[in-house]
């Protein structure tokens, strides 16, 4: 019966989110042009770098969230997991005095571990992703506060750590483009994740799970193991975000983090990734993250009250998804 329904339905041509990406990209350009016309302070290289710098952390989190959302899941713990990995870096570097590389790798591994834990709750304990990661969000927030005694850990004993985010390798080579390292990391990670999603088995199963998990299972795919691996990958990206954040602030701030997950999910959605799973791209997510930071930056430069900036962000999310649903009709 259902199959007959499907046979009769006029086939809707869907270009796998390409339309949405184009729409999002056009909106981004329109926003940049509009703000540039309205304010000469907006259209400076310094300000562009500010926008990119502001995008680096949220962009990394959005990349992490994209991976999970394509499986049809959700990760509410990316914000506090990021903080937890920053705290991990702080403990390794400042408390134990280990080399920077150890702190960075430790933070990334800790991120992967938190992702793996969420994945295990979801697959082995059959807890819905929303609940499992909501629990993880609170557990990790609490642990960050406990481990640090609610006080920030500073990286003053690890000179050079801040340059992970604040330095500029590109600027050293091309003085005209002082792109901060945090931004460079975002683009490298985004490119790597895009490659994984499109070219590797892990990526293939990410889309397969979101598209039809039962079909994947019946095809002999070890759904549980792959899902845990996917959450671990997302967690590792969250760990990178934690390192960049800590380097930017020159500290691990244990109270920070909650609220970032919603901004990240907003960027993913604006970028055209379907919350139903099966569809989505990293490029779209990057554009989505940029739209959010251009908005915030532009409105601030135009001296719009911060309260109204929040309202505008909310309106953009609703508008973007509405535009997508219009396009699909």
């Amino acid at each position: 019966m259902t199959s007959q329904d499907a046979a009769e339905k006029p086939k809707s041509k869907d270009l796998s989110g390409a339309g949405q990406k184009l729409l999002a990209f056009a909106s981004l350009i329109a926003l940049i042009v509009a703000f540039s016309l309205l304010s000469e302070n907006f259209r400076t290289v310094t300000n562009m770098m500010n926008i990119l710098q502001a995008t680096s952390v949220i962009g990394l989190l959005a990349v992490s969230a994209t991976i999970v959302i394509i499986t049809g899941g959700i990760d509410l713990s990316v914000g506090t997991a990021m903080t937890f990995t920053a705290v991990t870096a702080g403990m390794l570097l400042t408390w134990l005095g280990l080399p920077i590389a150890v702190g960075v790798i430790g933070a990334i591994l800790m991120g992967a571990l938190t992702g793996l834990a969420s994945g295990a709750f979801i697959t082995k304990m059959r807890i819905p992703p929303f609940i499992a990661t909501l629990g993880m969000m609170l557990v990790l927030k609490g642990l960050s506060l406990i481990l640090t005694g609610t006080k920030p850990i500073y990286f003053n004993d690890s000179p050079g750590f801040t340059s992970i985010a604040q330095g500029s390798v590109i600027g050293a080579l091309l003085p005209a483009f002082p792109v901060p390292n945090g931004v460079l990391i975002l683009f490298i990670v985004a490119a790597a994740v895009a490659y994984i999603l499109n070219r590797t088995v892990l990526g293939r199963y990410t889309y397969a799970l979101g598209s039809n998990e039962e079909a994947a299972r019946l095809s002999g795919v070890n759904v549980d193991a792959w899902k845990m691996a996917i959450y671990a990958l997302a967690g590792a990206v969250t760990g990178i975000a934690g390192v960049v954040l800590a380097a930017r602030l020159n500290s691990a701030q244990p109270a920070l983090g909650q609220g970032y997950e919603l901004e990240a999910i907003a960027a993913v959605v604006i970028g055209g990734t379907s919350l139903a799973g099966g569809r989505g791209t990293i490029l779209g997510t990057l554009i989505g993250a940029l739209i959010m930071s251009v908005m915030t930056n532009g409105l601030r430069i135009l001296s719009v009250a911060p309260e109204w900036q929040i309202v505008a962000t909310g309106a953009i999310i609703i508008g973007a998804v509405y535009a997508d649903s219009l396009r699909k009709k």
Partner: peptide
């Protein structure tokens, strides 16, 4: 009921779980 992943391509569906890599 057809057990296919709608968002994947035909070839990707056929070899799901046995991709050459």
């Amino acid at each position: 009921e057809l057990m296919l992943m709608r968002d994947l391509t035909v070839a990707q569906n056929i070899f799901i779980g046995r991709e050459r890599r």
